[in-house]
Every structure is written in C-alpha cells, then in structure tokens.
C-alpha cells in the first residue's frame, strides 16, 4: 500500500522504517529513565565501573535502585560477554542456545494449542449444544493456575520437551478458541443467505465464507498466543527439570543472583526478545495472508 506515503502530512520514510525508528526511540527513552533514576538514587558510580569514567555520588539513596536490585545497563551488557562459568562460553552463547531450545518448545506448544483452539472453536460454532455444554469447562480450565496443572502434565507425560509443549499449549489454546468462535460467527446474515441461495453445503460455507471471515480474528488471537506460548514454555521447564532452556537459565542465575545480578537481567531480556520475535513472526504471516483485504488490519 502506498496510501500513507501519498498523504502530504506523512513522512517520506517507508512505514517499516518509521516503526523501527519509533521502536529505537522508545528503547532509548527507557535507557535514559533507567540510568537517570540510578543517577539520582542509586549506588555511587565508580570511574572504573562505567564506560564513561564518571565519578558520581547520587543525591538520594533509594533501595530498589541499588546496583544489586537494578544493575547498570552496561553491567547487563557486560554480563552478556562474560562467561557464566569459569572457562565456559560467553553468556550470550549460552542464552542463545537456551533461547533456541525454549523457542522450539514454545513453537510446538503454539502449534498444538493453535490447532486445538481452532478445532474447539469450529466445533462450538457449528454445534450449539457443545458450546453451551463445554464452554464453562473451557473457561474453568483457564482459572486453574498453570503452576497446579504443570506437575500433573509431567506425571502423565514424563518430563521432557513434550510435556513442556503441552503446558505451553494449555496457555495458548483459549484465546484461539474464543476468537475462532467469534470469527466463524462474524459473517452477516446476507452473506450466509448468498451461500444458501446456491445451496452450498455446511462444509463449503465453512471454507469459503466462515473461515476466511474468521482469519483476522484468528490472527489476533495467534499474536496473543505466540507470546504466551513462550511464557508457558519457560514456566513448563521449571517443574520438568529441563536445564537447557531459558527457564533453567532463570532458575540457575536466580540462585547466584548476589554474585552477578546482570546475568539474570540478561536472561530476562533474552526471554522478552524470544516473545517479541515470535510475535513479529506471526504478524508477518498475518500481513501476508490478509494482504489485499480492507486495510483495517493495517491500522494496528
């Protein structure tokens, strides 16, 4: 679409470039606030511990802003480069491997949860009785905390990446079910009448009308699910005793927080990046699949 570029008020840069700039500006703003707070209320800055060689005594002392609670940005960056164990590989490499491992679990959970969610939504949309009968249980399943479900899943399936994927799927399927149901019911009566006027079968109506009409709704839920699947995978790793993923890394660096707070923060940042990466992946597929439609999806 060139619509944005053709309006006189819009900047000449392409949309994606403007989005990137906005994103970087926000990151910069967070960094400024972060270090600004530490400048005002953190521990004293020593010249040999920051890249600018600044010697500074903050005017206030706030406990949450201490170097232990909120390490300097450069301490976190430094932590990425240092080995986590003596003579081991640098932390970035460990975290990269862990991120790939967790992403695979999350992806498996996302696929299982997405398919299950779609299937449930499709059944509910077609069988009124099922919707009435089963929806309360589906809703109830979401009120049980994942912490209580995870050990059960591990008992049933044995600890492993499959159990982690199932736990992740448990967190993912619900938004997909709700949105699929809503989307499949979204065609207006005349759109359905058109299909009936040439005696289309329920199956044809499903694939030529209901499903395409539901796609924008489904993608909205898949974007939610992409991020929660990563959360699910990280949480699922904890009771499964899996050490190769980000959940294991969080557990590990949490234990040794005092000796190096930067490492846990680095792990948190990587976890967030995995979620963002997955979200962007789904958003790109969405843009591809929904291209040409009424541009309401572009407004977001």
């Amino acid at each position: 679409m060139t619509t944005a570029a053709s309006t006189p008020s819009a900047s000449r840069l392409p949309r994606s470039a403007r989005q990137l700039i906005a994103f970087l500006l926000i990151v910069l703003a967070i960094l400024v606030v972060w270090e600004g707070a530490k400048y005002l209320g953190g521990d004293p800055w020593r010249a040999d511990s920051n890249p600018f060689g600044i010697e500074h005594r903050p005017p206030f002392r706030v406990k949450v802003l201490s170097d232990l609670n909120l390490p300097h940005v450069w301490s976190i960056i430094e932590a990425f480069g240092n080995p986590a164990r003596r003579n081991g590989p640098p932390l970035v490499q460990i975290l990269f491997d862990a991120a790939v491992y967790t992403f695979r679990e999350a992806f498996a959970g996302f696929v299982i949860g997405g398919l299950l969610g779609f299937l449930l939504g499709a059944i509910f949309a077609h069988v009124r009785l099922f919707e009435r009968g089963c929806m309360p249980y589906v809703v109830a399943s979401q009120t049980v905390p994942i912490i209580a479900i995870a050990p059960m899943v591990i008992i049933w399936l044995k600890a492993g990446w499959i159990s982690v994927a199932v736990i992740s799927a448990y967190l993912t399927f619900f938004p997909v079910t709700i949105n699929t149901l809503r989307g499949l019911k979204s065609p207006d009566p005349t759109q359905l009448e058109l299909m009936h006027s040439f005696a289309a079968s329920t199956w044809t109506i499903m694939w030529k009308l209901r499903f395409p009409a539901a796609l924008p709704y489904i993608f909205t839920s898949l974007k939610v699910s992409a991020t929660t699947s990563v959360v699910g995978a990280i949480i699922g790793e904890l009771p499964s005793g899996i050490r190769q993923g980000l959940g294991g890394a969080i557990l590990n660096f949490n234990q040794y927080y005092i000796s190096g707070p930067g490492r846990l923060w680095a792990t948190i940042i990587v976890s967030a990046l995995v979620g963002i990466f997955f979200f962007i992946l789904v958003a790109l597929v969405e843009r591809l699949v929904l291209s040409g439609r009424y541009p309401k999806t572009e407004i977001s």
């Binding site: 759109q191 009448e193 006027s197 005696a199 439609r293």
Partner: peptide, 21 residues
C-alpha cells in the same frame, strides 16, 4: 429448486466477500 441451483439472487446490498477480488 434451491438444491437444483435454479436461483440467481441479487441482494439489496451488494454482499461481496471482501477477501476476494
């Protein structure tokens, strides 16, 4: 007649599917 696809219906509103060209 409907099952035999005898009807061509033009609705009062155009009723096009917006994901189709």
């Amino acid at each position: 007649a409907r099952l035999d696809q005898d009807y061509g219906f033009v609705f009062q509103s155009a009723t096009l599917y917006d994901w189709r060209t």
